[in-house]
């Protein structure tokens, strides 16, 4: 598939802590629509929570962490992922970004989760603090560049 000049896709990654739902890490490329993204990610937590409770009821010990497409909007697709400790990952991509299918998103989440685990393993990291790890940052940046 040859590429045409597709308007630069937008990817946003948000991570929210377990029960309190405050943001641990939010990053968006490009940054101009940041506020809207924050709203989007925040709102998507509704669906994440709905799905978590739904999964718990229906499929007991299912180990699937990927929640799939949370909800589509006219401009964005919002995907969710939740760790076993109920840390929520949200990826928002431009609807026009067709190169990112379910599988790509899934692997992005997995990569994100691995990196997140590394951050958590850092003994100097205080759980619940916003993530400021440079390593994590660079991995996220790489992922976003790849995705766009």
């Amino acid at each position: 598939m040859t590429t045409r000049d597709v308007p630069l896709g937008t990817v946003q990654i948000g991570i929210c802590s377990g029960h309190v739902n405050y943001p641990l890490y939010i990053r968006s490329v490009p940054t101009q629509g940041e506020l809207k993204f924050h709203y989007t990610v925040h709102t998507s937590l509704d669906v994440v929570e709905e799905k978590i409770s739904g999964v718990g009821k229906a499929l007991g010990d299912q180990r699937e962490l990927y929640l799939g497409l949370l909800y589509p909007t006219e401009d964005y697709k919002v995907y969710g992922y939740v760790t076993n400790s109920k840390v929520k990952f949200v990826i928002v991509v431009d609807s026009s970004n067709t190169s990112l299918r379910d599988n790509e998103i899934r692997s992005m989440f997995r990569k994100l989760h691995n990196s997140f685990t590394d951050v958590m393993c850092n003994p100097f990291y205080n759980p619940g603090d916003p993530i400021q790890s440079k390593a994590f940052d660079s991995i996220v940046s790489a992922m976003m560049v790849q995705a766009c």
């Binding site: 929210c16 309190v20 739902n21 405050y22 943001p23 939010i26 940041e34 506020l35 924050h38 709203y39 925040h42």
Partner: peptide, 13 residues
């Protein structure tokens, strides 16, 4: 809700 979950950007807005 933004305060209780400390979403600073929406909070500010």
């Amino acid at each position: 809700s933004y305060v209780s979950e400390s979403w600073s950007l929406p909070l500010t807005h």
